[in-house]
Design a protein around this nucleic acid. Structure first.
Length: 400
DNA sequence: AAGGATGATTTAGC
DNA sequence: GCTAAATCATCCTT
């Protein structure tokens, strides 16, 4: 189909050429390209002579032959081509047709030149680059994407196995993408040279200007780049699916390590009266537990709500941690004060708190000797979030 | 396999 | 932006 372009382009030119004895192009034909030819145009006397008639009939003949050459058999056409090439009028006719084509070609070019770069293609390119599929070499991009995705979802250390799985799949996609791209590029350049050779060959018998060849090359490249766009598109899709499979933290939930849970619980129960760690405390906990700050926030959010919903169920756990912290406290300091929070208003909750002494029921007795834990927690009763309260209200009493 | 535990996400209020 | 509450999706124990 690509070959059709020159043919159809040729058609109209010939059509116009046929009736153009008075065309301005004729001018340059003689004055520029054929300066040495017998000065038929310079001599008005010749215009009406037999000679003039003869040559215009001659031109008509040649054009007629050119027009019908495609209807002939190959051998016939080759012979005719050769004959036409040797015809004395050929150079002149040729340059006129070139000139006309040039003009029509220019107007066509203006129509389609400078087509803006497809924004969709730019997006695809950017994405492939960001994912580490396109661009320099592996490692950087892919690894960055992974760590970025996991930093919010946080994964336990053992997830490195999945990371390598992800990476290998990604590099698989990457290599497929690159080989396909290479294939396309190779096919494109092969086809381009083929067409160029063809046009160059044809340019011996029909008017094909270099600019036209250039234009043709442009068309071929556009066609091939649209195929490349499809390749990029499906590569992007594959990467998205891969990411969804491997990096969606929700799908690959991992329980925190025992140590992490312990650290979080310690903090929670030792700040039971106000279990809202400040930003700094969260960072500290995150570092200590090897998880992210947002995971710490999630954990405390879940813990608070679940504790509140079923305090009884957590009593045992609370006692254990209360005991633990109390132990640590007595080791560090003999003072009778507990190290933890007990915030000012903590003691008010009647129902909640009996987490001391393994004892389940009790109360009345106040925290005096409660191991560590502060019972209650007014927070369990409040229905509004503590906002401003969270940051430092317990910071004062927490040792660190 | 069932059901509870648990980490993450969503929704809504402030 | 932080939180409570509800919910989802997976893990883990039975």
């Amino acid at each position: 189909m690509l070959q059709q372009q020159p043919l159809t382009g040729n058609g109209p030119s010939n059509g116009r050429g046929l009736g153009m004895s008075g065309h301005p192009g004729m001018h340059s034909l003689n004055s520029v390209h054929q300066p040495s030819q017998h000065r038929s145009d310079g001599d008005p006397g010749l215009e009406g002579t037999e000679n003039g008639h003869e040559s215009s009939r001659d031109i008509g003949d040649i054009l007629q032959q050119i027009m019908t050459i495609t209807d002939q058999s190959l051998d016939e056409a080759q012979a005719k081509k050769h004959a036409l090439n040797c015809h004395r009028m050929k150079p002149a006719l040729f340059s006129v047709l070139c000139e006309i084509k040039e003009k029509t070609g220019l107007s066509m070019r203006n129509n389609q030149e400078e087509e803006p770069q497809d924004p969709q293609l730019v997006r695809l390119d950017n994405m492939l680059l960001a994912e580490g599929v396109a661009g320099p070499e592996k490692g950087g991009g892919a690894a960055a994407a992974v760590s970025a995705a996991t930093s919010s979802g946080g994964m336990s250390p053992d997830s490195s196995l999945e990371h390598s799985d992800y990476k290998s799949k990604l590099s698989q996609i990457r290599s497929i993408y690159h080989t396909e791209l290479e294939k396309y590029e190779q096919a494109c350049s092969e086809f381009t040279t083929h067409v160029m050779n063809l046009l160059r060959e044809q340019s011996r018998t029909r008017p094909v200007s270099p600019r036209e060849i250039e234009r043709m090359v442009g068309i071929i490249h556009r066609k091939f780049s649209s195929i490349q766009t499809q390749l990029k598109q499906s590569t992007c899709e594959a990467v998205m699916i891969l990411r969804a499979r491997f990096l969606d933290a929700r799908r690959k939930r991992r329980n925190f390590s025992k140590q992490a849970t312990e650290g979080l619980n310690e903090y929670f129960y030792s700040h039971l009266s106000n279990p809202y760690p400040s930003e700094e405390a969260k960072e500290e906990l995150a570092k200590q537990c090897g998880i992210t700050v947002s995971q710490v926030s999630n954990w405390f959010g879940n813990k608070r709500i679940r504790y509140k919903k079923n305090i009884g169920k957590f009593q045992e756990e609370a006692n254990i941690y209360a005991m633990k912290t109390a132990l640590v406290a007595t080791q560090n300091d003999d003072s009778p004060h507990t190290p933890n929070s007990t915030g000012s208003g903590s003691f008010s909750l009647p129902g909640s708190a009996d987490l001391f002494l393994g004892g389940s029921q009790m109360n009345g007795e106040q925290p005096g000797y409660i191991l560590g834990g502060q019972t209650n927690g007014s927070w369990t009763g409040r229905n509004t979030s503590p906002h401003a309260a969270s940051p430092r209200s317990d910071g004062s009493d927490h040792s660190e």
